[in-house]
């Protein structure tokens, strides 16, 4: 795994509550599955398996916010983006 930046999962949930309030999420055996509108995507559970607030690589978050088309709002919540 690389050394690129990460964002705590709790901060991602806070951003989604703000920018995609109708989203739904479900923890599966291997990842978090997230639905918003007609789109669905996944966030990994973290490098060491299931944890409550794993650091999530920024690339996964960038991918998610572009898929959900919430880039501008997300950047306001997560300046790291």
């Amino acid at each position: 795994m690389g050394s690129n930046g990460t964002i705590p999962l709790k901060d991602i949930w806070r951003m989604l509550d703000m920018c995609a309030p109708e989203h739904r999420k479900k923890k599966t055996d291997h990842c978090w599955r997230i639905w918003f509108g007609e789109h669905t995507t996944k966030l990994p559970l973290g490098e060491h398996g299931k944890r409550e607030n794993p650091p999530t690589q920024i690339g996964h978050v960038r991918h998610l916010v572009r898929l959900f088309e919430i880039d501008e709002c997300a950047r306001g919540c997560l300046p790291q983006l």
Binding site: N4, H39, T40, K42, G59, R66
Partner: peptide, 16 residues
């Protein structure tokens, strides 16, 4: 990073 186009829900990458 590799960002999926199709399938579009997948991504993965490295740093530095």
């Amino acid at each position: 990073w590799m960002f999926g186009v199709q399938p579009g829900s997948v991504a993965g990458g490295i740093g530095a």
